[in-house]
Structure formats: C-alpha cells, structure tokens
C-alpha cells in the first residue's frame, strides 16, 4: 500500500516496534521428505539469507524478508570448548557453522571435542531447544555433499 500521499504523521509504516524478543522463534523446519533443516530468512529484494531470520535485512536495509528453510549440512569454521561463562553451565562447545549460500550460524557442537576439526562437515541435530545443535556428519553424508 502506497501511503506517501498522507502526511508523515499519519503514515503507518515503521511506526510500531519490531517485537523481536516476544516469540520463541521457529529454528528448525521439516522438509516434505522428513529432513530437518535450519529455519532462517531470505530477503526478497537482495536474496541475502540469514539465520535466524530478522525484521530488517542487514545487507540491503529492506523488510521484504520471508521465512526460508535453509540447509542441514554445513562446515565447521571454528569452535571452542567454553570452560568459563557468565551465562550458563560449563563446559559446553560452540562453533561457527557455514551453511551453503553464505549463511553463518553460531551453534552448539556435539561430539568429542578432541575429534572436532576446522572445515569438517557437520549436520544439524533435530532435537533442538532454543538454539541449533550440530554434530560431525557421517562418512556417507560427506560424500553426498
């Protein structure tokens, strides 16, 4: 709706806050084949993908963002076992996972930390709570990729 014929004080766009803290976000989607994938957003204007989704696209500044089921396989860019934290019980392992089409997510990483390597293939673990979990992918999955 074009509202620019109205005076600025009566235009409805960008006059209400983005309620970005209110709802528990849907972080995991299921494809028709039953596969779990990361749920994020895709900008309809510039095609930038992001996870989690957000109200405004940091790439182009637009708000034409729709939900998008992203991927389940990614590569582990780096990781750390956290032994001192202000926010939760330790130890826990977090890492940056790069998904196809230039999406990076911070996620919990399962598995023996001593076996983890930078650039290894990791797969989304379905039973997520309020964030994503990834674990090293099986040999077959790596080949698939």
């Amino acid at each position: 709706m074009d509202t620019h014929d109205k005076p600025a004080g009566e235009r409805p766009d960008d006059t209400m806050p983005n309620l970005d803290l209110g709802e528990t976000e849907r972080l995991v989607a299921r494809t028709p084949l039953g596969e779990h994938t990361v749920m994020g957003g895709e900008c309809g204007d510039c095609s930038a993908r992001m996870a989690p989704s957000r109200p405004v696209c940091p790439n182009c500044g637009g708000t034409n963002i729709h939900p998008a089921a992203l991927d389940s396989l990614g590569t582990l860019y780096s990781f750390s076992v956290v032994h001192v934290s202000a926010t939760r019980e330790v130890p826990y392992t977090i890492g940056y996972v790069d998904l196809p089409k230039n999406v990076r997510v911070l996620a919990a990483i399962d598995g023996d930390p001593a076996e983890l390597r930078c650039d290894q293939v990791v797969r989304l673990v379905p039973d997520t709570g309020d964030g994503w979990r990834f674990a090293p992918a099986s040999v077959e999955e790596k080949d698939m990729r």
């Binding site: 750390s80 956290v82 001192v84 934290s85 911070l106 309020d130």
Partner: peptide, 10 residues
C-alpha cells in the same frame, strides 16, 4: 549469539 553461549574468550 550471546543467548547461544557466546562469551568474549570464546
């Protein structure tokens, strides 16, 4: 990311 457990040393 802070909610996901990010701390500065990590």
């Amino acid at each position: 990311e802070v909610r996901q457990g990010m701390v500065m040393p990590a």
